[in-house]
Design a protein around this nucleic acid. Structure first.
Lengths: 183, 183
DNA sequence: TTGTAATTTCAAGAATTTTTGAAAATACTA
DNA sequence: TAGTATTTTCAAAAATTCTTGAAATTACAA
């Protein structure tokens, strides 16, 4: 691996974390390298710096593009494909959350909704459905909230997060003002 | 698999989702089965219902216990180990978040903090460090907020989530009241 | 067009992870 | 304590996933 010790540790760490996040080590490493790179890199740069095969890099880049975590760019007078990560870390976070939602949360919600439409055949199924309903309600609540808050501009979002639990002071007042949102 | 079609679909789905969440298919299935089961199950019940080997169940249950997602209980007059998931889905969510944090977020924050202490050796490393700092700040902000909000009781948390972006109406007021929390 | 650069695909091999049955260990009962 | 029930460990087999070089495809330039 052709990296300074500092960068190598970062890249290796994200390689390991990748596997916990549903992408493989290689994909994690490519992402990490692009994230810290001062300029866009082409596939051969990545091969050179990470010491993996050209085909592996090609597959990894495809995967990262499907996650919208890396972006294809072109440099003037060079017809190779170059890749970067978005500059704004908030945007990165939002993208990651959206993709995770699309790939994991939404299919789970569909499954649960479908299961809840079935007529339970016995007491055990009735109990199972009750559990599924609880899970469905929780996920629905969390993702609705998240989807809403995610649309705030980063500055507002940051202020909100920094307030933390202080916002609870306003929950009563807000409830009075915003009955319509309550169930 | 000895399950009704309804329950089988649920269990299979969570088996698949398991892999995206850093546990294997078996572990996901065992968890799903326990989640919807009306009473605690012992290892042989699980073997019987999911059709996997006894040793696999033993390993899976160990893993789930290490995540604190299943709980060992004993039934009077039966010395086998029985397992359940907690009743409250909020509690389950909290546990999951805490464990994910402990296993993924905290090690990442340590790595980043350590990297930020190094003296950059050249312009590229300086840029890499700048990126790592941005990432560190974002993760720190998100996890601090989450850790705080997580401590609210479920009822308050639920009200807060249902308000969604309505809380932004109070951000200005809150900022004035709570200067101490701002940076 | 034709030739070359760049990227992707693919099938085989390598590596890793999962699953299993058998044996070992542990925990209880009589 | 001896005997049995229960759980865990472990090494091998099975399954899956990852990686690769070579070939095929695509995209461009002359």
């Amino acid at each position: 691996m052709n990296l300074t010790p500092l960068n190598e540790r970062f890249v290796l760490h994200f390689g390991e974390m990748g596997s916990r996040w549903g992408v493989n080590r290689t994909v994690g490493q490519i992402y990490a390298l692009l994230f810290i790179s001062p300029q866009p890199l082409n596939a051969d740069d990545i091969v050179e710096q990470l010491g993996m095969s050209r085909s592996n890099v090609s597959i990894g880049l495809k995967e990262l593009q499907s996650w919208r975590l890396v972006r294809l760019v072109h440099l003037p007078g060079d017809r190779r494909d170059y890749f970067t990560t978005p500059d704004d870390v908030w945007e990165i976070f939002r993208t990651l959350a959206e993709e995770k939602r699309k790939r994991e949360v939404d299919p789970t919600l569909s499954l649960l909704r479908e299961a809840l439409l079935q007529e339970p055949q016995d007491a055990a199924e009735e109990h199972a459905q009750r559990r599924m309903r609880e899970m469905h309600e929780l996920i629905e609540l969390l993702t609705t909230w998240f989807g809403e808050v995610q649309r705030l501009d980063p500055a507002m979002l940051e202020r909100l997060l920094k307030l933390g639990t202080q916002v609870t002071r306003f929950v009563d007042a807000a409830s009075r003002l915003g009955r319509s949102k309550e169930d």
